[in-house]
Design a protein around this nucleic acid. Sequence first.
RNA 1: GCCCCCAUCGUCUAGUGGCCUAGGACACCACCCUUUCAAGGUGGCGGCACGGGUUCGAAUCCCGUUGGGGGUGCCA
Length: 469
Amino acid sequence: MTDGNTAVRVRFAPSPTGFFHVGSARAALYNWFYARQQGGALVLRIEDTDAERNKEEWVDCIYSAMRWLGLDWDELYRQSERTDLYREAAEKLYAGGLAYYCDCTAEVVQDRTKDNATPGYDGFCRDRGLGPGPGRALRFRTPDEGTTVVHDVVRGDPVFEHRTIEDFVLVRGSGAAMFILANVVDDIDMRISHVIRGEDHLPNTPKYLLLWRALGGPAEPVFAHLPLLVNEQRKKLSKRRDKVAVEDYRDGGYLPEAMVNFLALLGWSPGEDREIVPVDEMVAGFRLEDVNNSPAYFDEKKLLYVNGEYVRMLPVAEFVERSVPYLDAAGLAWDRAAFEEMAPLVQERVKVLTEVPAMVDFFFADPVIDDKDWDKRVVRGPAAAELLADAIAAYGAADLPWTAEALHDATAALGERRGQGLGKAQFPIRVAVTGRAVGPPLFESLAVLGRERTLTRLQAALDRLVPAA
RNA sequence: GCCCCCAUCGUCUAGUGGCCUAGGACACCACCCUUUCAAGGUGGCGGCACGGGUUCGAAUCCCGUUGGGGGUGCCA
């Protein structure tokens, strides 16, 4: 598909108008896959032509989110620093009679065309011979007849009739270039070979092509319009309605490699019934022509599953390291040695790193007893007071080695004496010591906690259960 | 309204005319394992939107219908 003589040059061109969106991340990822696989270049181009809506902090969001995902770029441009190029292109178009100035305001255009079968600008100023002037926009003069075909690797060859394309604005009345102009000028200038972007751009691709030709661009790029990412209502993921910010997932305890793997699966399949695939294998196996053409639902449940897989694949030391920010964020006065001891048991029980603190908090502070668990597993549990008292006696015995195994056996014996299985018997102890009915394996936890702290907590629970007369 | 795109289990997908009695994964349910919870194992539920063609043969090709989505900005 690629012409072997032409270097593959792709671009990811986000506009800094909000937090970095998972849909953008997916588009960036596919561009990156293709560039890396083909040994081509990935251009990161910040499309900040609309000063009103852009913010510098959003630009930083783009950089940090991409770095977090591991998507590196080879060249970086900002459209706000390239305005001369756009002005030159606009002047060339005007001089060549391919564009004209228009002084119609948006309101006027709307009033004039609202009853037309095909709304949009009606070409009112086409032949008025207006020159440049304050407040005047420059419009592209689209052909009245004929068609433009978009050759798209994932969509086939959609045909657009020129008569359905209005004379669109190239330069605002303020003199600032519009997206379409800057986009095409840059793609030509940057020798972009493949335009890989969201499907929402498909309708403006004929305009892009018309402009490309008017500007005398060389060989046109290959297009690949990616299926949209949608929410449960099957609507395009939106910043207002949906949880779409990549940084929210980062803060939510997701691993970047899991996010990358999950995103890759939305619109493409590694094949052979494989889903959890290392990134280098995805890069190697990625095919633009295998990208799907129907919208994909961003299913957080599946993301959660994928993340759990990646969490469990981590070497323990790495898991510990990655958990640090989340432990700190939870405000725990945590201790590394103790956490390291429990880490393997915690690792296979969490799906996101934000769950880590709640798994180990009882090591580093007095347990906060969960009322529901206390009521269900202790108060209403059979003879809990007696069991707690027995546990205190058994655990306090000087000849009991303080090991998980010995504690397991001692507790099993306690339960047996009253006809309880270990599963039941451990509940009051677990709630007393950790505050909750669920958590990492109990006896291993007690072994790390130590005899003294365990006994203190058991006694506290017993006192709470049976207040001293 | 007009233009364009899309259509396989609830979801993500495999499938490119016979390997399909439509495969995998998530979710869900059951059972097993088990010190709670997870993880793991086994099994189950569940789909080619509909109607016409083409063909010896269609999930796969064509047409139509229906349904969904995107675009329609001096936003990107």
